[in-house]
Amino acid sequence: MITLNAVRKVFQTRNGPVQAVDDISLRIEQGEIFGIIGYSGAGKSTLIRMLNMLERPSTGTVSVAGQDLAALSNKALRKARQEISMIFQHFNLLWSRTVAENISFPLEIAGVSKEERKKRVAELITLVGLEGRGDSYPSQLSGGQKQRVGIARALANNPKVLLCDEATSALDPKTTDSILNLLVEINKKLGLTIVLITHEMNVIRKICHRVAVMENGKVVEQGPVLELFKRPKQLITKDFLKQVVEPEETTDMIKQLAKAKPESKIIQLKFIGGHAEEPIITSVIRSFDVSVNILQGNVSQTQNGPYGTLFIQLQGEYSEIERAVAFMHEQQVEVEVMAYAD
């Protein structure tokens, strides 16, 4: 659906040229939810803006639905943009228009007749769950409702691609969930390809099928979300994963325990997909002379299947611990011995 080929973007600034996007090639398939995660300044905003030519690439090609966007005339590009819509972190609604008029805006741009617009706006208001709010002004809505208007507006012209620019970063966790659910719903219902950028791993975990990690203008790692959870390669990816699986208080607690019992070993087990059900802990306790102290565990759902982590502490003879760890390595789980020096 979307192909980026060796795309670069250089900004000329007073302090010399800055490489915002540095040689990125990506393929995004029809109907998938593709996430791009990175810290601010990684170049993800520039990257997503090149998918509708709000930023033109310095070199390289961007093609969406088989069209090379940079080669289009102004008129053809405006037409193409009606099929690549976008939602924004700060919603970017027109305050001078009501909810219904905001949703009608892209239809006016596309030259849709008045009756048709009215009908389509009513459908969209129902689709995003804003019945009865059509005549409100954006200033009378909550953040979540504003983003719903943004989504309805983006869907008005039946786009093929929806670009989400930090669409949930200004929302509280509960509202974020409801907006993410809405995105998954429209992805399934309309078969829409969604590309989103974010700095929150939770957003990636909850709705993305595949993810690319960006750092300093480059994609440093990409793959199916579950694959990345299982075997993160880059340091920055592990950093992002910590947001989801390893909250700060866990890290603190583990440090404390490791200090108190230096002879014990703390181990993180990762259960991916169907293997989450295997009774590995029971086997360890039965087969080896070690005691197992369960510290913390969680299971979360991704679009590719469940994903669980379990932190345990093994106590006993050093050689027995080593054998137990070796046994766990042979099972269908990822094992990581946690090292917390200091």
Binding site: L54, R78, R81, S85, F88, N92, P106, E108, I109
Partner: peptide, 16 residues
């Protein structure tokens, strides 16, 4: 500026 950007992203021309 975000609103202008949003209008551009919808394919609005200069007059619109």
């Amino acid at each position: 500026r975000g609103v202008i950007e949003a209008a551009r992203s919808m394919g609005a021309g200069a007059g619109q």
